[in-house]
Design a protein around this nucleic acid. Sequence first.
DNA 1: GTAGGGTTAG
Length: 478
Amino acid sequence: MRRDGVVPNAYTFSSVLGACGTPGVLAAMHASTVKVGLDSDVFVRSSLIDAYMKLGDLDGGRGVFDEMVTGDLVVWNSIIGGFAQSGDGAGAIELFVRMKDAGFSANQGTLTSVLRACTGMVMLEVGRQVHAHVLKYEKDLILHNALLDMYCKCGGLQDADALFRRMLQRDVISWSTMISGLAQNGRSIEALRLFDLMKSEGVAPNHITLVGVLFACSHAGLVEDGWHYFKSMEKLFGIRPEREHHNCMVDLLGRAGKLDEAVEFIHEMSLDPDSVIWRTLLGACRMHKNANLAAYAAREILKLEPDDQGARVLLSNTYADLRQWTDAEKSWKAMKDRGMKKEPGRSWIELEKQVHVFIAGDLSHPFSDSIVQELNRLIGRINALGYVPQTEFVLQDLTIEQKEDLLKYHSEKLAIAFGTMRAMEGKPIRIMKNLRICGDCHAFAKLVSKSEGKAIIIRDPVRFHHFQDGACSCGDYW
DNA sequence: GTAGGGTTAG
């Protein structure tokens, strides 16, 4: 077209920008839009923002957005959606507030992205407010699916359940979301029952539905059921098991302590094992304290991804679990030499529409003094219920006192203490974590839920723990 | 008669 001397217009650019697969091509295309003076056209602008965001270039997208000479709702939606999709929920919500200040009112697209941002940050209360605006779009399935997912991932299972029942239409995504949501919240049996209901209503499952089903099995120790679904999924639903399903099986077997079967499964599967599969096995080895197999899995990961810090951390931790301090030390040193650091534990809690972040061992929160006081009070109360700090969850070679101190200031404990101080009467404390919860914090949360008569809900990267009256929804199986 | 933004697992 260019060779023929035809000058592209805004229609051309907005179509072509979506196809820019590399930063170089996009930059050239962006330059062309400027050259012909079309970069301020709202269609071109929203396409440009979207193209940058899809390549993961947040600054690039933001740059185009900030030149805002012209803008409309879709331009706002592009930038908000971009932030929400790249995991910057706080940024997305901030932009959403600015958008409203600028006099635009949200439509379905905006609300969907904002819900996704709420989901990412476990902002259930903000999500509930968004729900009020969703009501007028009762026919929008995408939006309702996003709302459903928000409730599931924020631990609002009752709301999710009620919404799911009320929805005017449900597609395979709605069903899959609800099935996974139940499974992640420790209600695997209900998840499988819902799967049966889905089939009886004639909705065809897809490969993601089956991931949810297998996830339900693996997180409830339902080894037989898991095997059954895995073996029959192709025949029954025409879905060939993919990587994710194989990974679920390794998780299912490994989590249940059948490590040999898990290894055998990996060796015999038709796909080449990737680092995700090995990482799943490694996690199971750590859970069941099999250092030799862990070392094997970690070496396989590092073969595929030499700079994988997760593998090195888990390997070090396994050695530490076994009190093999020299090997642990060596492994930590290998990390340091490669300039890698362990990601610090972080917990978030939403109180009065504000998100508070706690970092393990970091007492710089403005209310730290009273939080530590509250923590001591809680520990005193649960000591009476038989709490003993499980220092084996500290993965360094330290004295008992030092270990107890490290354990005491794990980020989720700080967040729980802040929660018991400040949370509303009768409302559960909701916390999100970046790492999986440790065994000591799990025991701590169980006992605090009992001593304070308060429900605590913790979301880690893969699942939820609902603590109430001294027990957890995971049944101590995670 | 031509164009831009949104949902599900790990």
